[in-house]
Amino acid sequence: MIKMKGVTKTYEQHNKPALDNVDVDIEKGEFVFVVGPSGSGKTTFIRLLIREILPTKGEIFVAGQDVVHLRLRRVPLLRRNIGCVFQDLKLLPNKTAYENVAFALEVIGRPERVIRSQAPEVLKLVGLEKKMNSYPDELSGGEQQRVSIARAFVNRPPLLLADEPTGNLDPATSLGLISLLDRINRTGTTVVVATHDREIVDSMRKRVVALEEGKVVRDQLRGVYGHED
């Protein structure tokens, strides 16, 4: 599903690369945690996959597409195959929870009839059936987080990326969210979660890719967050 070969990303005006010669292979249907402290390159990892940014060096394949050499007009098609829960959520402030989720379906040209049945269904799955008509600023952090997951998942993409989905949530809510992602994974969706939340990583015992200063320092099946540091 995801293949990174020798990927290096150096941002302009930085001399140290955010990602440094990274090789990662993620198979279809896997559940992977990308872990590491702040600034270790987790978000860069995610942004590269949806081609928000391009690598300085290396090759990236996502769902069979050559991301680096993808033509600009094909970029929307790539993104429609990837559900993404952004670190800053990126909910549309002028749209209600329902409209935010529906938007992901509008974009791929689903007919109104399908949208009207699918969007509420997914919102129900994340437990927001009573908040469908609330605007993002009327929702709590955890609720916004769940709208974001619902939007990422509503068109059943083969790949779901989540960047710090449990950031600033309390532990109980965090575990609820992760088990939601786990359930989505069981439907066959490949799930990649970037996080520095030790507790959830340790509780799930999934594959762990650990980043440190832009380098992959550990890639372990059924892993844990790692040593105390």
Binding site: P76, L78, N94
Partner: peptide, 13 residues
């Protein structure tokens, strides 16, 4: 502009 960027990131042409 942020709204536009979000639309693009969720796959809008």
């Amino acid at each position: 502009r942020k709204e536009v960027a979000i639309m693009k990131l969720v796959g809008a042409s």
